[in-house]
Every structure is written in structure tokens, then in C-alpha cells.
Design a protein around this nucleic acid. Structure first.
Lengths: 140, 140
DNA sequence: TTACTTGCTCTAGCAACTGGAGCTTCAAGA
DNA sequence: TCTTGAAGCTCCAGTTGCTAGAGCAAGTAA
């Protein structure tokens, strides 16, 4: 049996975060020692590893909750899990596009900042100017 | 002079968000009408447009605050603004890398989900399995 | 003038944690 | 066995960047 600290070390999740996950019901309430300290087994390691990876991959906790509940009943079709992953993939692709635009913009800024004064520095100008805006979709 | 609603419509920023920006000092306190309603001029439109673009490009409000304070005193060297842009650029490059890895992972997941049941669905498996993990850096 | 929309302030809430205060329990060395 | 220090406990507050609601006042069009 593992203490919460060991569990955190093995999974790369901080101790308060583990307690937080328990609090919001993402992890079941842990068994306790005689002195009221949480004790974990290998199943908890797996579950928390799963959560950590999913978080790293950008899944919101709600999606993870869904995924976990799915994995608890492995006989139903995996379409739901697939859909969650697809949704996530779409979001990621969009984020990538926006970040790419941002990167280009910042690179241009840095290149154009010719060590003059702010008044001729494009860092301000580019962000204030609508015509240079890569996302002219006003109504988002 | 514009009401807060018009300002929001023109800049694509929601009304409560504008009030929030004023509250945290990102926008100066607006002039008021006889009936205590906020009134804005074209300068406010520009400033808020600047903020909106910067937010879209992923700048945190602190960086925007810095940028704005720089643009308020245009005679100082732009080294500071340049530095902020560089810092932001580094952060963006890192986010891009992580997102790229994530995208690959999700694409693999979706491709491998062969419409079976959860028990043979790789979405769950991939997230639980350490060996398939693209970020084996436990620390951080 | 009467509606109706928009505005006002204030408070509370969201995600997803993070950190601190003040206390108890555990593990290891002397 | 005692002691010391790390690690655990609970509870509460704070973070970022908003968003939503209550309960009003002000502005506007018919």
C-alpha cells in the first residue's frame, strides 16, 4: 500500500492535486490507515496515470470523467470514447492554427523591432491594427 | 461617445469583460454620463482592440499590461517590448511542440478505434499505458 | 407616457488547481 | 524508547480570466 506522497511521486501528480481529484469525485475515496492517512493500491496508480496522461493531452476533467466511467464498463461499444477523442482532436487542430498565426506574428514583431523607440516599434502596432489581424472574424 | 454596449459590439469584447478590464486596471476608469453610465471615445476602441488581439494571440493579461504601459510612454527604448515579445515567442514555440505531440497521439487513437467495444478500444489503452507515452519526462 | 432595452453595482461561480495555517501521524536515528 | 523532522491531515483562501445572476436605475422608441 502506498501513501499519497508515494502515489504522487509514482504518477507525477502533486499531492494536493490528488486530494482535489478525490474531492471532486474523479478518484474514489481512498482507504485510510489507523491514523487516518490515505492508502493506495496499484489500481489507483493506473487510474491516476490515466488521468495524468489525459490531462497532458488536454482533455478537460469532464471528458476524463466520461472516459473513466466508460472504462469501468468495458463491454459497451467504444464509439463514445472515440467521439470524445475526435472532439478533442478538432479542438487541438484549431489551437494549432491559432498558435501558428501567433508565432508568425511574434517572429515578425521581433524581427522588425530595430532597437529604436516604442514609437516605431511594431509590437504595439501589430496588435492594435485590424488590417494586420489574421483572424478578422469579429463575431467569433 | 459610445456606450459600453456599442464599445463591446465594435471591439468584439463582451460588456462584463470590459467592466472587468476596468476593474483590474487594464482600462482606465471611463468617463460617466449624467446618469452614471460609462462613455467611451475612439481611443478606448483602439486600446480595447489592442487588448483583444493580444488576448487572441495568447498574451496573458500581465504581458498586455506591460505592453500597454510601454505604449503609453512611446519615447523609451523598445527593448522592453521586444523582450516581452521574445519571451512570449518562446512560450508559444513550446506550446506548439506539445500540441503537435498531442495531435499525433489523438490521431493515432482515433485511427485505431476500430469500432469494437471499449475493451479493445485503444483510446483508453493509450491513455493508461506508460510505454505509449510521448512525454516520459516524469518531473514537471 | 409607457414599455423595453441597456446600463449600473455587487456577489458568486466556473475550471483546475495551488498554497498556507495549524494540527497529527509516521519513520528513522541516537 | 525517545525524539526529531518529514509527511500527512483538514479547511480555507487565492489564482486567472472571465461569466452569470439579482435587483435596481437610466436611456430610448412608439
Amino acid at each position: 500500500m502506498l501513501s499519497i506522497g508515494k502515489l504522487g511521486a509514482r504518477t507525477g501528480v502533486k499531492v494536493p492535486t490528488i486530494r482535489y481529484y478525490e474531492q471532486i469525485g474523479l478518484l474514489a475515496e481512498a482507504d485510510r490507515s489507523a491514523g487516518n492517512q490515505r492508502l493506495y493500491d496499484e489500481k489507483a496508480v493506473e487510474r491516476l496515470t490515466f488521468i495524468r496522461h489525459a490531462r497532458e493531452l488536454g482533455f478537460p476533467l469532464d471528458a476524463i470523467r466520461e472516459l473513466l466511467s466508460l472504462s469501468d464498463q468495458p463491454d459497451i461499444p467504444c464509439g463514445a470514447a472515440d467521439m470524445i477523442a475526435r472532439r478533442q482532436l478538432d479542438a487541438v487542430r484549431e489551437r494549432m492554427l491559432r498558435l501558428k498565426a501567433l508565432q508568425t506574428e511574434l517572429e515578425r514583431m521581433v524581427a522588425q523591432c530595430a532597437h529604436g523607440t516604442i514609437s516605431d516599434c511594431r509590437v504595439i502596432e501589430v496588435l492594435g491594427n485590424h488590417d494586420l489581424c489574421l483572424h478578422p472574424d469579429h463575431g467569433h
